[in-house]
Design a protein around this nucleic acid. Structure first.
Length: 268
DNA sequence: AGGTCGACCTGGCAGC
DNA sequence: TGCTGCCAGGTCGACC
């Protein structure tokens, strides 16, 4: 569900609210969401304190005092909520010694929690491309990586081995701001276009983080609040509504099995 | 080897 | 009201 800005918002909230706290107990209401056997999951967490809260792409990494990591993939509907009221979707409850509770809620149960001895143990994390805000992501990198690709540019933006953390909403928004058609073949991206993709990726993602993410449906931050970026969204989920630049109708197409929204007039 | 597709699971919504 | 079908922000493995 959440993309980089939403996961980053949660990471910052958690950093503020659970850093250095010690875990007293862990309750598993539904082991389906665990990718580590319950017993090992619980024993890895109990009596440990929180050393750091990090993020790689859309993965949250909570570092423990035993040097292990709790990796959380929220997928479509996962939420990490502090001190909320547990409901039927609260599959894991982590209680701290000071009384604080961290809930893992997940309506669709696509999300995954696992214990890592080290980050390299995770196949997913090892496969991730550069972070959009990292030094390895640049216009030159985009140009180099697109040059030999025959896929539409939208599909490449969604590929986490190309760049980490960009999902369906922000891929649509970035391409709209670039004025690039999502069907445009990656191999035909010019130097000027790669520069635009780089600049707009940074701009869209930073604005979204500043607004604490976009809540389309299920996304909530660690306090259970909705994000505010939704009102700044220009094309996503706006099928048949007028383009905010040219009044032409926004179109929905399907690419690689995912909905793409774009303005056929502004995005050539 | 690169790329696409369906499956994973649940719930909201539109249409009949 | 109640049923059916479609849709959903991600990731993985099977397949072409």
């Amino acid at each position: 569900m959440p993309e980089l800005p939403e996961v980053e918002t949660i990471r910052r909230d958690l950093q503020q609210r659970i850093l250095s706290k010690t875990i007293k107990s862990v309750r598993i209401n539904d082991p389906f969401v665990l990718r580590t056997p319950s017993k090992h999951f619980i024993s890895s967490l109990e009596h440990q304190s929180i050393k750091a809260v990090e993020r790689r792409g859309k993965a949250l990494l909570i570092e423990l005092s035993n040097s292990k990591y709790l990796q959380v993939q929220l997928m479509m509907t996962g939420q990490l909520v502090i001190d909320g009221a547990p409901d039927k979707h609260s599959h894991v409850v982590i209680s701290f010694k000071d009384g604080t509770k961290l809930l893992y809620n997940d309506q669709r149960k696509f999300g995954q929690l696992r214990i890592l001895k080290s980050l390299s143990e995770s196949k997913h994390i090892s496969s991730l491309g550069p972070e959009p805000f990292g030094k390895d992501f640049s216009a030159d990198y985009i140009l180099k990586k697109t040059r030999h690709s025959k896929r539409p540019i939208k599909n490449l933006l969604l590929d986490h081995t190309f760049v980490a953390g960009i999902g369906n909403i922000y891929a649509c928004e970035i391409l709209f701001r670039c004025g690039i058609n999502p069907k445009h073949l990656s191999g035909k991206i010019t130097q000027a276009q790669s520069e635009k993709i780089y600049q707009n990726s940074i701009a869209v993602l930073s604005e979204a983080i500043k607004n604490r993410g976009s809540s389309m449906r299920n996304y909530r931050d660690a306090s259970g609040e909705q994000g505010q970026f939704k009102r700044l969204i220009k094309v996503y989920a706006r099928e048949d509504q007028p383009c905010l630049k040219c009044k032409n109708l926004i179109q929905r197409i399907v690419q690689a099995g995912r909905s793409t929204f774009y303005c056929p007039k502004c995005q050539k």
